[in-house]
């Protein structure tokens, strides 16, 4: 398997940007940071797609596009299938000798939010991965339907106040735990599945490069801290991301061929989950006597998950 080494910026692409400014994403939006890190990880030609969501509605509103590579959007649920279709066409035209630039091999990447990935587009992604299209699917996981104003998705974590699961006099907000999309995608037997966060850019770029070097479907779950819906100041996007990765709420790991699990980032100082929750307005209501127990449960869940990941990793050694 390809070993990516990205110890410093020299290994990060020196290529020019292929994602443009003056898009309509909020100031401080992590989506944009993630997209840049993905696109800048390669000098290869790209064929891109997106599902309906923040990224799509902010980067392709007529008469402007922010995409310097070919890009397609159809609907909310089918960004994966659109790119899979393009990939199928590439294979045919290559076989039939009809490519206009036969010397170039583009990479195929589909972006989707957690709504488009965990919920409405789940079946389409599953189909693409089962069929083994040579493509990368990147989930921009901001744990909420941010584009439509902050409704809960199946990625929204317990206790978060979302617009369809608001906290109130008798409710602490979202009641269900976040769906484990990483495990589900690994269970497809995908050759490469990885969780990334834009603040840990070395780790992220290494994984993206590994993904691009992998033949077959690659799933990337990218934590995308949302200044608008998580309710923190725009300048704190990276600081919040640091809290997420260093509290292990968002552990960074990869699963190869559906089985071999590697933890790729071990924080030097693990931060209490409380600190991560406390930095965001969506969890503000938990910091009351009434809901203190939920914070303790959160910590216990994160500890248990970290323990599980470590055991899984050891089991593969």
């Amino acid at each position: 398997m390809f070993q990516a080494k990205t110890k410093n910026l020299k290994n990060f692409s020196t290529s020019a940007e292929r994602f443009e400014g003056a898009n309509l994403l909020c100031p401080g939006c992590a989506h944009s940071i993630i997209v840049r890190e993905v696109l800048n990880a390669t000098n290869d030609h790209l064929i891109l797609g997106a599902s309906t969501g923040c990224l799509e509605v902010c980067t392709a509103v007529y008469p402007h596009t922010s995409w310097d590579a070919s890009w397609i959007h159809i609907g909310f649920e089918n960004g994966s299938s659109a790119v899979a279709g393009a990939e199928a066409m590439y294979k045919v035209l290559k076989n039939k000798g009809r490519l206009k630039q036969p010397d170039r091999t583009p990479k195929f990447v589909a972006f989707g939010g957690d709504g488009a990935t965990y919920d409405i587009g789940f079946q389409w992604i599953s189909g693409c991965f089962e069929r083994g299209h040579d493509m990368m699917y990147v989930c921009l996981d901001n744990e909420v339907y941010a584009n439509t104003g902050g409704q809960r998705s199946s990625s929204t974590p317990i206790g978060a106040s979302a617009s369809t699961t608001p906290s109130g006099r008798i409710s602490y907000g979202e009641k269900q735990n976040k769906k484990d999309m990483m495990a589900i995608m690994a269970a497809h037997g995908a050759p490469y599945v990885a969780q990334v966060a834009p603040n840990q850019w070395r780790d992220m770029v290494a994984k993206i490069q590994k993904g691009f070097a992998t033949e077959g479907p690659v799933f990337i779950n990218a934590m995308s801290a949302c200044t608008t819906e998580w309710k923190f100041s725009p300048e704190d996007t990276i600081a919040i991301s640091d809290l997420a990765t260093d509290s292990l709420v968002f552990p960074l790991y990869e699963i190869i061929d559906g089985t071999k699990l590697n933890i790729t980032y071990r924080p030097k100082n693990v931060i209490p989950v409380r600190d991560y929750l406390g930095a965001q307005g969506r969890f503000k209501h938990l910091f009351t006597k009434q809901y203190e127990y939920l914070i303790n449960e959160w910590q216990a869940r994160v500890d248990a998950k970290w323990e599980l990941l470590q055991r899984r990793e050891e089991a593969c050694l």
Binding site: V57, V61, Y62, T65, D68, W71, I72, H73
Partner: peptide
């Protein structure tokens, strides 16, 4: 490069 499927 071409952008397909924009919003209007």
């Amino acid at each position: 490069p071409v952008t397909h499927g924009v919003q209007t």
